[in-house]
Simulated scan of single mutants.
Amino acid sequence: DFRVGGDRAFYMPGSDHIQVPPQPAFHQQIDYYRTCFHELGHWTGHPTRLARDLSGSFGSKAYAREELVAEITAAFVCSNLGIEPTVRHADYIGSWLKVLREDNRAIFRAASLASKAADFLFGLQADAEGEAQEGIAA
């Protein structure tokens, strides 16, 4: 459930939906896609998908860890799609330095989880392409 509207981007685990502002709300259009991939990164953590801990409230360590995973997922997806990386990813990850300082393995755990999330998203793309090919063959 991917909704476009409002003035902020978020993923709601309880209702399992993503909401992002419309494209014109972004100063650089590429940021719309980066934001979508970030929120899709959160979406992969739902219990019916990759089952990560999405229970953290803003400012908590669990929240910071999940934000790292989502942002690294977005960076991986952008890289795979040939979307130029920007400082935005590094700056955003830097905002969660407290977690990184307290756990010198946090970035590696987040990157591993983000890799699984990106693979999950690309698996959906491959499944959709396979279904489209089956439809053409029928």
Rank of each mutant, 00 (worst) to 15 (best):
L50W: 03
A114P: 12
F76H: 13
A74P: 04
D7Q: 13
S95N: 15
G56H: 02
H38D: 15
L124C: 12
D31C: 08
A64H: 00
H27G: 13
I83Q: 08
R109I: 03
S112P: 00
D91Y: 00
A137K: 09
A126D: 14
T73F: 06
G5T: 04
G5S: 03
A70M: 06
C78W: 02
S112L: 10
K61F: 04
Q19Y: 04
L97K: 08
A138E: 13
S79L: 02
A62E: 09
A75H: 01
D119H: 09
I18D: 03
G59Q: 03
A25G: 03
S60E: 08
P24G: 01
L121I: 14
A64S: 14
H38P: 13
D127M: 11
E39K: 02
M12W: 13
R34E: 09
I30R: 12
L54W: 11
I72K: 00
K61Q: 12
Q19R: 05
Y92F: 10
F76E: 12
G14M: 10
R105V: 01
S79G: 11
I136F: 05
D103K: 08
A64I: 04
S115L: 14
A114C: 02
L121F: 13
Y32P: 10
P21R: 10
R101P: 01
H17L: 13
L40G: 01
G135H: 06
E66G: 09
D127Q: 15
F2K: 05
A114N: 02
A75G: 00
Y92S: 14
S112F: 03
E66I: 08
Q28G: 07
A70V: 06
D53F: 10
A25D: 00
Y11F: 15
E66F: 00
Q125M: 12
V99I: 07
A137S: 09
P21C: 10
V20Q: 04
A117M: 01
A117H: 00
V87G: 07
A70R: 04
I107M: 15
D103W: 07
W43T: 10
D16W: 05
L100E: 07
T48A: 06
R105T: 14
Y92I: 13
D127Y: 01
A137E: 14
G56W: 09
Q19N: 07
T73Y: 05
A117G: 11
G41K: 03
K116I: 02
A9C: 12
T86V: 14
V4F: 05
P47A: 06
P85Q: 08
K61G: 04
H42D: 14
A51F: 10
V20K: 09
Y33L: 15
V20R: 03
F76N: 10
A118G: 08
I93D: 06
A137L: 14
A25F: 15
C78Q: 15
I107F: 01
Q133F: 05
L54I: 06
V69N: 12
P24I: 10
P85M: 00
A128W: 07
G6L: 08
S60Q: 13
P22T: 05
R34I: 09
E102D: 14
E71F: 06
D91T: 01
A118R: 02
F122V: 10
R88C: 08
E66P: 06
E39L: 12
G6F: 13
L97W: 00
T44C: 11
D119E: 15
E131S: 12
A64T: 09
D103R: 07
G130I: 05
V99L: 12
L50S: 09
Q29E: 10
F10I: 00
S112Q: 11
N104M: 08
